[in-house]
């Protein structure tokens, strides 16, 4: 299912064979450098794409989609990640300003902490298009395009309730508790599930969005109580940890597992019957929309849309799993 890119094979062969770790580090780091220099058209100019991290498939899909779209529209791109560090985000925006970027596509590092840097870019005459996460201010960014977490959570919870036939014991895994989305999703789940008195929450744990932690905690919860019919998790990574724990306990396929995000691994698990459903965040669509609006703004001075735009999540189940690719419809 995965493509075997030659570069990846090289990246593993280098440390194994030549033992020169630093060479490997240099050899593979082409993501951060601006690309398409030769392909600059007269429309041209730089689009800076800044996302939280490169080691998360979701953010990577987002960045890849924005990069591909911008390059197809004739722009140069630079892709960087701020690791959820507002200070690093600010530095990256400074860099974009000094390189006279035409637009910044930003998945920001905090609803309040990002207001200043975004305003700084605006003051420098560079339009900013926010994706995935909002900031607590309007009129600064040119667009804020986010997926509707509350709607997605309700969608997932609805499907969960149906699969559970509205009754039974269930466990909820919450994401990193300091993350806004963790709270929004958990509330979305609760809003739906609390309407069904026969659904009983027997445990609620945070697993910090992490697979191994969800695995360990699920195993422990099963030690306390095997009478569990469903698990709903704030993201797919935790849901997949739960699936592994259920397999180890011989309960796979007997427990309804629902996740959130629509990651390729989760979709594969749904196809395999290990997971029931996930709410897919259309990261690709959001990123592409942001780049299209940036292009329109650069050319016409207007995006032609409201600042705040929300994109609905889509429910992925066994029936429609084949229709979806990496964080978007195929």
């Amino acid at each position: 299912m995965r493509n075997l890119l030659p570069r990846r094979a090289l990246a593993i062969a280098v440390p194994l064979l030549s033992a020169t770790l630093f060479m490997a580090a240099c050899g593979g780091s082409d993501d951060d450098s601006p690309s398409g220099g030769a392909a600059t058209s007269e429309a041209g100019g730089l689009v800076a794409i800044i996302t939280p991290s490169a080691d998360n498939p979701f953010f990577k899909a987002e960045a890849d989609a924005a990069k591909a779209k911008a390059e197809s529209l004739g722009y140069e791109t630079s892709v960087a990640s701020h690791d959820d560090d507002p200070n690093k985000q600010s530095e990256l925006i400074d860099a974009a300003i000094s390189r006279k970027a035409k637009a910044i596509i930003l998945d920001n590092a905090g609803a309040d902490a990002s207001i200043g840097p975004v305003r700084k870019a605006k003051d420098a005459g560079i339009p900013v298009f926010l994706i995935d996460r909002e900031i607590n201010a309007t009129g600064i960014a040119n667009a804020q395009i986010v997926s509707n977490n509350a709607q997605g959570a309700q969608l997932a919870a609805q499907s969960f309730v149906e699969a559970m036939s509205s009754k039974g014991n269930y466990v909820e895994f919450v994401g990193k508790e300091s993350d806004t989305n963790a709270g929004v999703r958990s509330k979305g789940f609760t809003d739906v599930i609390s309407q069904y008195p026969d659904l009983k929450q027997v445990a609620k744990e945070s697993a910090n969005w992490d697979q191994q932690e969800a695995f360990t905690k699920m195993e422990t919860i099963l030690q306390k109580n095997r009478d569990i019919q469903g698990v709903i998790a704030g993201n797919d990574t935790m849901a997949l940890g739960v699936v592994a724990a259920l397999k180890a306990a011989g309960l796979n396929g007997k427990v309804v597992v629902v996740g959130f995000d629509g990651s390729p691994d989760a979709i594969a698990a749904i196809k395999a019957g290990d997971m029931h459903a996930t709410a897919l965040q259309p990261a690709v669509l959001g990123a592409e929309t942001a780049v299209e609006q940036a292009d329109k703004f650069i050319k016409t001075g207007s995006t032609g849309a409201e600042e705040k735009q929300s994109i609905d999540c889509e429910l992925v189940t066994e029936e429609n799993a084949d229709e979806f690719g990496v964080f978007g419809r195929k």
């Binding site: 990246a11 490169a54 998360n56």
Partner: peptide
């Protein structure tokens, strides 16, 4: 360095199955 290598090799993605 080791974390960076892990990300480079995997291209940031998880290996399933």
């Amino acid at each position: 360095v080791a974390r960076g290598l892990a990300l480079l090799i995997s291209n940031g993605a998880t290996y399933p199955n």
